[in-house]
Design a protein around this nucleic acid. Structure first.
Lengths: 241, 241
DNA sequence: AGTTTTAGATGTCTGCACACATCGGTGTCA
DNA sequence: TGACACCGATGTGTGCAGACATCTAAAACT
């Protein structure tokens, strides 16, 4: 199912557009794509429709299928993110995601302290403690697993479905290695305790403490990650397009 | 083109799914949809493919087209957001967007102070001042227009394409009224100056001041908007799905 | 320069063959 | 006799091929 012709056509075109192989303004013809990908018209059409909804192409009668500039791509779509991570813009995409996460998590922590259901608070504390233990014991694989679980739980606990999906949509589609382009891949002593502090603040409903603790973690994470995003040029998208 | 059969089919099904008329688990048959919407198979198939990429449905052989639960919907897609705003969950969607915006804008302001290109900084200051003037003169339409322009510019100035699209993808697709479910629709004295302060902080590269000013605006905005989101239940999406 | 015509592309419809998940009947075994 | 494993029938999405409709950019013509 994952390797349906339809899916493969989307993957093929999406990758090539985002990598820059098919630059903005490039025009393709459905008929030509049929030959190139060796699939029928319906497959091409369905793939193009999906790419259209992602903002990667537009179709115009009498012209063809035109590739759109990067500013039109839906930057929140999991597929688009995955394609960008596989392209030269990998560093820029990681930075964008990290900045977003760093902005959102403290807010999510504060909301979770106010709104999260009791069982989730409990689980959060348990995961944070288990994570601290795994870190102390040098059990890196378990630490990584718990780290993701912790941040996913926190975002879910906010009760904001957009926050919840930040880790959700992305983390699940992505490989473990890519996810850890967003978070340190080996434990940091103080940060282990900070996670527990955040979890406990959420558990007792202390929003301010939860936010501050999360901000501390995010600041630390950002500084540790910053050098991995090899100096990537920032893209400034014009307001009107 | 906007009212192509394909587009209308997407609109019809998307609206009905998100409104809850077609609940999660509900199974439809392509053939049945052809009859119901009075369109051909190709139209249905292309529409279903798009809805699939938005996480609204999944297709299974021998079963049909199954509606997925809300937790699987892509909450960042502009269409999904629009459909939710037109549904009973309007309040919850506005709250989610406002929380996201409130988390992101201060971060964007700080990044803009560090990275925004010079012309954008200049424009930001000009817009902020024009906005203050319009507010003082009681020119509400112009104030609204400039308000959107200001926040769009600020987000663009961050150089983070995800931030830039928060206003972009959403605001442009949406009606003016909906956008102002996210920001006050008449000027507040002090806030007018705060906008200028933020713009000037960004212009002189003072990240800390820009962030603080933006946080002040966001706190004010949130408290003024909060009562418009009539007590909506929060949705807690399970981590694994 | 403005208008009309035309060619060429997508949009829509239809009939067919195939793959494959599910269901239900059949046979085997305890 | 009853429970269970097997296997074929069935129905559905997937993919294909070809036709006609419709729109529009670009050419041709005033």
């Amino acid at each position: 199912m994952t390797s349906s012709l339809h899916h493969r056509a989307i993957e093929n075109l999406g990758t090539r557009i985002i990598s820059g192989e098919l630059p903005a303004g490039h025009v393709m013809l459905a008929e030509q794509l049929e030959v190139e990908l060796k699939v029928s018209r319906s497959v091409i059409r369905e793939a193009v429709r999906v790419l259209q909804s992602l903002g990667l192409v537009e179709t115009t009668k009498r012209v063809g299928i035109r590739v759109l500039p990067a500013g039109r791509w839906n930057p929140f779509d999991a597929q688009v993110i995955r394609w960008r991570l596989a392209s030269d813009a990998r560093g820029a995409q990681l930075r964008s995601l990290a900045e977003l996460r760093s902005a959102v998590e403290p807010a999510a922590a504060e909301l979770a302290a106010a709104n999260a259901p009791a069982p989730l608070r409990l689980e959060l504390v348990q995961v944070a403690r288990a994570m601290r233990d795994a870190g102390h014991n040098g059990d890196v694989p378990r630490f990584l697993e718990l780290d993701i679980a912790f941040h996913s739980l926190l975002l879910s606990g906010s009760g904001n479905e957009m926050f919840a999906n930040l880790m959700g949509q992305v983390a699940e589609t992505l490989t473990g290695r890519t996810v850890h382009g967003l978070m340190p891949d080996h434990p940091h002593e103080a940060a282990l305790q900070w996670h527990v502090d955040v979890a406990e603040a959420i558990a007792r409903g202390d929003g301010a403490a939860a936010r501050e603790g999360s901000e501390r973690i995010m600041r630390r994470t950002m500084t540790r990650m910053a050098d991995t995003w090899t100096e990537q040029p920032r893209v400034f998208i014009p307001v009107n397009r």
